[in-house]
Amino acid sequence: MSTYKIPTMAEMASSGENPEILFWVGCAGSFDDRYKAVTQAFVKILNKVGVSFAVLGPEEACTGDPARRAGNEFLFQMQAVANIQVMNGYNVKKVVTACPHCFNTIKNEYPALGGNYEVIHHSQFLQQLINEGKVALQGGGEFKGKKITFHDSCFLGRANDVYEAPRDVIKALDVELVEMKRCKTKGLCCGAGGAQMFKEPENGKKDINIERTEEALSTGASAIAVGCPFCLTMMTDGVKNKEREHDVKVYDLAEMIAKDMGI
């Protein structure tokens, strides 16, 4: 029986290999029960397509994004410098991650600390695989013809101007992509960015994820697609709050592609 291969950089290095890409899993991808499924789906795709990759496994640590955005620059840099030492030690050239926060931090903020890599988000990576014909989509899977809306992650969209890659991935599934009124540059945050994920919201009239979920539900979509672990949590909670979990699902892009590929 051939099983899924998930080599670590350490294993690769000990056998003298250097993988093409480092898959940066991130804390949510490693520990969050719901997002672990996304990590697994993405790894299945990488296996199926035969991409040369490895993960850091236990050597990975938080990029430091929430610490930096909460104001703790010292803690951020401790995390960042340690990560950069590990990555530079393995001579990492290209990083793919399913987390827009990790993506933004490694791509834009690690260079100032000596970490220079080509960094792409998994939506961009999936888009490339689809464009190159490496991912054979069935096109008749459970999403065919369904209405699906995409919720832009701020750290992918406004922060880094990636708007089309995730949409191209969704459209490749032969679905009807319906946009919310606030989308792309005007996309409304899920409420978790800037380290809000790790604290209760300040006093207000409403939670941001409820506001956003209401907008997503108003499109009549049967699924909300996201490309970010925090957005996934916030939108899933929102759908539960609106008692719509029976007919509206929240998926990450990688899960949708893996489902369609039958893996």
């Binding site: 099983t3 899924y4 291969k5 697994q40 299945k44 496994g57």
Partner: peptide
């Protein structure tokens, strides 16, 4: 425990 997410997958038959 950071790499535990892979335990199950490593023993699953690749499709």
């Amino acid at each position: 425990d950071r790499f535990n997410w892979a335990d199950h997958l490593k023993n699953e038959e690749a499709k």
